[in-house]
Design a protein around this nucleic acid. Structure first.
Lengths: 127, 127
DNA sequence: CGGTATCCGACCTGATACTG
DNA sequence: CAGTATCAGGTCGGATACCG
């Protein structure tokens, strides 16, 4: 960060958008949080999360591996076992994610209530 | 949160996915951060962010208003002026977002380096 | 078991044009 | 100025089938 002039917040934000988009991907978040508990194998993750397709799990895990958030270990057995574990980097992401999860948990009721009220007001206009 | 049995983290995560998906939307994040500085008018936000289409700005602002994160105030002047300001809820979201931004800033260099290394290893196989 | 390749529909997004 | 409506392209994500 060699910012000599104080940049407005949204400019920093732009620089980090590739990282922030990780969070928007719900699968990424769920995988990271799932691996927080302990390392897991492919179908173990799949079963634990539930509702994720094989392809999306494979894709997301590869993306996480590429970013160095997840370490992939192949045990040359028959049948093959592949274990996924969080790296230090991956573990460090879990903290801010949990903060966000905490915020969501604190405010989700209010948000849902706001949505209902907004939609009601909208519908009464439409009628 | 009436969890009588300790739920695994990923289950909580699922409940919050509708909130978490807010974060993944880069426009949402940038708008919230932009409004952190001060309330702004429509085209002011548009110019400040840059690169956002009129439609996406309108849509995203509507969504934020629906969630109660942003308050929309119409001044009945000619030409009409519409001011958008963060609510208390919106301001409270800015904190965890900035934490995430801080994490991104701290680790983006390592992540990009990891990506390069991964792609290089991949390319050397392809060759 | 742990993937990859292909197809396909749904959604996201921007460009453009029009309105109050 | 502050939107809304319509269209078109691209991407996302799932289902399926197949490979090592």
């Amino acid at each position: 960060m060699e910012l000599t002039t104080p940049e407005p917040i949204h400019v920093e934000c732009k620089r980090f958008s590739s990282v922030l988009s990780l969070i928007g991907d719900k699968w990424t978040v769920m995988i990271v949080l799932t691996l927080t508990e302990r390392p897991r194998r492919f179908n173990d993750i799949k079963r634990t999360i539930g509702g994720i397709s094989q392809q999306m799990l494979a894709r997301t895990l590869r993306a996480l591996e590429r970013d160095g958030m997840v370490a992939r270990t192949v045990h040359p057995t028959v049948p093959p076992q592949v274990e996924y574990a969080l790296t230090a980097l991956g573990r460090s992401l879990a903290d801010p994610i949990r903060e966000l999860g905490f915020w969501a948990g604190t405010n989700i009721a209010e948000i849902e209530s706001n949505r209902l009220a907004f939609d009601e007001a909208r519908d009464s206009l439409a009628a």
